[in-house]
């Protein structure tokens, strides 16, 4: 038998391009972006063909539904991150400032979702690719993922109306290159993390977060079918914002804040019914370091709660889960991510 090569699992390509409208996929992507992991592509539903006709078994299955869906964890690069933010934050969410380098892309969530065309390039033995082309895809969840010792990552969940197989090979307008040496894009090191439990805007710099994830999500997003195999309608539902972090305890302020309503309760204080709003303002640096390539995330109103830690006989330091949920801002936007790069045009 002749020895044959298997298809390598690490040579996929992922890219996406902004659509001007639903139903009009673009021919080529704006950005091809490196990923850490991905599980995305065509989806289908199969149901039993429950026909009775004298046989002892069901005769098979059929497909009533087909769509595009999955998860991707992307590298966070200053040039391509605004493409992912526009995908989630919606049509015309990007405000660009600056006449020269750096330009700042500040995002505000809009109600009108921004459809994108999504390509999954599957490797074929011999260094070529075969493409799945997702059409009318929406980013229904976007996570900012920070972990000490790791590069900053962007998690996304996407849902799309349809997908074309063996699609025409695209030519990305921009390909995010991985440098031959050194680190890449936004990173954990050098971050400035400001967090206040009961004050806004945030001014207190903290250093005790081991990890955090900020999630922006349409948790009830659904696509509805009527008379087609692919969806005919979508409903984005409500939008939510949440925060979860591994929090090293240096004092009991967050614990007291959670249960007694204030960081420093007086003697014999009863549990409090109040859930005060705090804030956060995180600035994530780029490696190699550049003040002109940062990403800043501001959440001016967020309700924090610390999960009650438990004693441990091994004597290890106390780390607890700190979570937070969106509270209605007194005015303004609930979250404003801002990315610095040298791209003059709007991403949205």
């Amino acid at each position: 038998m002749t020895l044959a090569a298997e298809i390598p699992s690490n040579q996929y390509k992922f890219s996406l391009g902004k659509q001007s409208a639903l139903g009009t996929p673009v021919a080529n992507p704006d950005y091809q972006i490196p990923v850490y992991d991905a599980d995305i592509g065509p989806m289908e539903e199969r149901v039993d063909l429950e026909l009775i006709n004298g046989q002892a078994f069901l005769p098979g299955k059929y497909k009533p539904r087909a769509w595009f869906e999955g998860d991707v964890t992307w590298a966070s690069h200053p040039d391509s991150l605004p493409r992912l933010l526009a995908w989630h934050f919606g049509t015309s969410s990007d405000t660009v400032t600056g006449a020269g380098d750096p330009r700042t892309h500040t995002f505000a969530r809009k109600d009108v979702l921004l459809p994108h065309t999504f390509w999954v390039g599957r490797p074929v033995a011999g260094g070529t690719f075969e493409y799945d082309k997702g059409i009318d895809t929406f980013c229904t969840k976007l996570d900012f993922i920070y972990e000490s010792g790791q590069l900053f990552k962007i998690g996304t969940h996407a849902v799309g109306a349809s997908v074309l197989g063996n699609a025409t090979a695209p030519t990305p307008t921009n390909t995010i290159a991985i440098p031959s040496a050194g680190n890449f894009g936004h990173t954990w090191a050098g971050a400035t993390l400001k967090l206040d439990l009961a004050a806004t805007p945030s001014t207190t710099t903290i250093t005790n977060l081991k990890t955090f994830t900020i999630s922006c999500e349409y948790p009830n997003f659904v696509m509805d079918n009527t008379q087609n195999l692919n969806p005919d309608f979508y409903s984005q539902g409500l939008w939510s914002l949440s925060f979860e972090a591994e929090f090293i305890l240096q004092n009991w302020n967050a614990y007291n804040h959670t249960f007694y309503g204030t960081a420093s309760p007086g003697a014999n204080t009863a549990q409090s019914s109040s859930a005060p709003s705090g804030a956060l303002a995180f600035t994530i640096a780029q490696e190699p370091a550049s003040a002109n390539r940062t990403v800043q995330i501001d959440i001016p109103y967020i309700q924090y709660e610390l999960a009650r830690p438990t004693p441990n006989p091994d004597g290890s330091g106390i780390t607890a889960t700190m979570s937070g949920n969106l509270s209605l801002p007194a005015s303004g936007e609930p979250i404003t991510p801002a990315v610095k790069n040298n791209t003059a045009g709007s991403y949205s």
């Binding site: 015309s92 405000t95 400032t97 330009r103 700042t104 009108v112 801002a338 045009g345």
Partner: peptide, 16 residues
């Protein structure tokens, strides 16, 4: 305004 300096600046404002 420039987010860092607060000074007026050119750009594009995203509108729905």
């Amino acid at each position: 305004c420039d987010p860092d300096t607060g000074k007026p600046v050119a750009g594009l404002v995203g509108l729905a």
